[in-house]
Design a protein around this nucleic acid. Structure first.
Length: 670
DNA sequence: GTTCCGTTTTTTTTT
DNA sequence: AAAACGGAAC
């Protein structure tokens, strides 16, 4: 294997790359070259003649999956059309597409995201007259998820919600819809209940790899184990110190369970860090050593110690953002750092707002990954709901959304009657509407009947068009948008602010354009409406803009930054209550360890230089509050930190910026 | 019965 | 600051 010899792998890495069969656990510390090892290992497997389609690599985010597939392709120089690199959830969708009939659903099922789940819970509560406090709602989503995935059972929680949960489940099935948890749960039920289906998968996928293993939930582990127990060639790669998804059911115990389930496994620890300077690594080690619940490991680096960690105390969040923006401009000018090598990280999405404003006003190009997804914007979601109704008319939640959007005069009263009828006949709203419109003696006045019919006609007209496979989805959607006069709807809804209306319409155009791009892509094997819809609900966050990422500063949450690295990292809002987050702590004091891991992940993203900033005051909701620096700051060994407290760093930066500008103007003249 | 307007509430992280 | 909800106007 010529490239592997050339690759300068350390002995542990080499062993990991060369161990292809049998169970393997790789504990890979931050920056220990994990991605390199994983991709080379797969390349090596291919070189030894293992067919592409026998390999299944599972990741957590689409970004990670794409990145891995890309790196393997790059390494082997091959196209690799039948290699499966996919997220757990996307893989679940594939199993469901093949076999969901076994469970009594139809293949055109709709996937509900969290927003849809919340509306469904509300709707269900209304129907069974279950009184809900609005504060309970988001907790309920978590509770239902915990129940569904077996993290909790009813005996240990408030039994009170049980009937609501059961009704929620009944509705999902009635709508032919599944939620995110079902994407793991239902495949498990299929594989456990139908041995021949399981045998098929085991026969095909003889080599499994699970990345970010510390973030697998109990169910994902169960799914993985079902698939792996045929050939038992299973490689799990992870780092317990980077486990930051326990709130989503990720379970550190899976590492222990893995050792128990595969006693013959080989365990390899990668402890040499190739990413960060000695200072940054020492800071990270100092922090993480305060966690009690961890596997012992000591990361070390051969890289020299480098520059100190710099700590700033800006007056408020505006000053913080402006400071970062100026600092970045300076770095770009004086040290020739490229924007895409800079990461600006924060604990919560809401902190990004001020930063974006500052960057915008200073003309600093950036890209925010995470935040409200493009697909969650109302106008886009409206169109998606139309498409979902075309794909699966029984999807009541989507139907409710578009039934009176744009306004068609179908109000509460009509709706009540439709809902009552659907309830009585135990069928979907669509069927009920259809029945109401076609019945000779209708209980509705003629006017309402006409309104409903006009809606029905639109669906009936477009449904067959959207289901044909002629790569004309975008064209049909364009037509639909003009037929329902969505533009007129926007103008009417935003009479006072036509800028907003225009902006929203541009989003619509952008959405249609991205659909067109997707369906016209020659590499796209199956450009059907179903595939498109499934794809975008799973994609929800990051993604989209691919090519033009270069030359932009990366703005993101710490969660979104996992697996990435930057020359320079700014971590904002390092304040008590933000990191560790107050809500996490009042849920349970034990969460402090996970918050600390989050802080650790943020630090270890930096290769050369780390800046921390902790505001003295910050506006939270609409109050300005005094802030205390995060207790984690003190866990960094003091000698590594340089505090910029007194002098006003903004002025310094401004002065430098000023001179730099003069210099470059003069340079430009001759 | 439907729409409009003013009041209240909300922000942890993601598939 | 924006969305979602509930009550009053049309």
């Amino acid at each position: 294997m010529p490239h592997l010899v050339d690759a300068h792998l350390n002995p542990e890495q080499l062993q990991a790359v060369n161990t292809i069969s049998g169970p393997l656990l790789i504990i890979a510390g931050a920056g220990s070259g994990k991605t390199r090892v994983v991709t080379m290992r797969i390349a090596h497997m291919l070189e030894t003649g293992i067919p592409q389609n026998a390999i299944l690599a599972l990741t957590f985010t689409n970004k990670a999956a794409r990145e891995m597939a890309y790196r393997i392709r790059d390494l082997t120089g091959k196209k690799l059309t039948s290699l499966t690199v996919s997220t757990f959830h996307a893989f679940g969708v594939n199993i469901l597409k093949e076999s969901i009939r076994h469970l009594g659903y139809r293949e055109n099922f709709t996937i509900y995201d969290t927003t849809d789940q919340i509306s469904l819970i509300k709707e269900t509560a209304r129907e069974i007259k279950f009184h809900l406090e609005s504060a309970e709602l988001s907790k309920l989503v978590n509770l239902f998820s915990a129940v569904k995935t077996g993290r909790t059972d009813w005996s240990s929680v408030n039994e009170h919600f049980r009937s609501l949960y059961e009704e929620y489940q009944i509705h999902l099935k009635l709508y032919n819809a599944v939620d995110f948890d079902d994407l793991i749960q239902l495949p498990i039920r299929i594989l456990e209940g139908f041995p021949d289906v399981l045998a098929g998968y085991r026969e095909r996928y003889r080599y499994l790899l699970v990345d970010e293993f510390q973030d697998t939930s109990k169910n994902q582990y169960r799914l993985m184990k079902l698939l792996a127990d045929g050939a038992r060639n299973i490689c799990a790669v992870g780092d317990d110190d980077q486990s930051i998804y326990s709130w989503r059911g990720a379970n550190y115990d899976n590492i222990v369970q893995f050792e128990r389930d595969y006693p013959e496994l080989l365990e390899i620890k990668l402890e040499q860090n190739y990413r960060s300077t000695g200072t940054i690594l020492a800071a990270a080690n100092g922090v993480i050593s305060h966690n009690r619940n961890r596997k012992h490991k000591e990361l070390w680096t051969g890289i020299e110690s480098g520059k100190p960690v710099e700590l700033f105390f800006p007056e408020n969040e505006q000053a913080e953002s402006e400071f970062v923006a100026r600092m970045i401009k300076n770095l770009a000018q004086r040290e020739n750092i490229r924007y895409e090598q800079i990461g600006v990280l924060m604990r919560t999405n809401s902190l990004s707002r001020t930063v974006e404003e500052a960057f915008l006003s200073m003309n600093l190009p950036y890209k925010m990954s995470g935040g409200t997804s493009f697909y969650e914007r109302k106008e886009v979601k409206d169109l998606i709901s139309y498409l979902r109704v075309m794909a699966n008319p029984d999807d009541d939640m989507s139907l409710l959304r578009v039934l009176n959007t744009p306004r068609r005069g179908i109000g509460r009263r009509s709706l009540e009657q439709i809902v009552a009828l659907a309830e009585r006949r135990r069928e979907s709203l669509y069927s009920a509407i259809s029945a109401l419109c076609h019945a000779a003696a209708s209980p509705l006045p003629d006017r309402n009947k006409a309104d409903l019919s006009s809606f029905l006609e639109i669906i009936e007209k477009y449904q067959p068009l959207f289901l044909e496979k002629r790569k004309k989805l975008a064209a049909h959607l364009k037509e639909l948008v003009s037929e329902i006069d969505y533009w007129g709807h926007l103008v009417q809804e935003f009479q006072k602010n036509d800028k907003i209306a225009k902006w929203k319409y541009r989003n619509i155009e952008y959405f249609i354009q991205s659909l067109e791009q997707w369906e016209k892509d020659p590499d796209n094997a199956n450009p059907s409406l179903y595939t498109f819809l499934n794809r975008i609900t799973l994609q929800s966050r990051d993604d989209l803009a691919d090519e033009d990422d270069r030359g932009k500063v990366n703005l993101m949450t710490i969660h979104a930054a996992k697996g990435l690295e930057f020359d320079i990292v700014f971590l904002l809002g390092v304040e008590e209550g933000i990191i560790p987050h107050a809500r996490a702590l009042d849920e349970s004091e034990e969460n402090i360890e996970e918050e600390r891991r989050l802080f650790y992940v943020a630090i270890t993203r930096a290769k050369e230089k780390l800046y921390l900033s902790s505001c003295r005051r910050r506006k939270i909701m609409r109050e300005v509050l005094e802030c205390t620096p995060s207790p984690f700051i003190e866990e960094i060994p003091a000698e590594l930190v340089e505090i910029r407290e007194d002098e006003d760093p903004v002025d310094v930066a401004e002065a430098e910026d000023y001179f730099a500008r003069i210099r470059s103007t003069l340079a430009g003249r001759d």
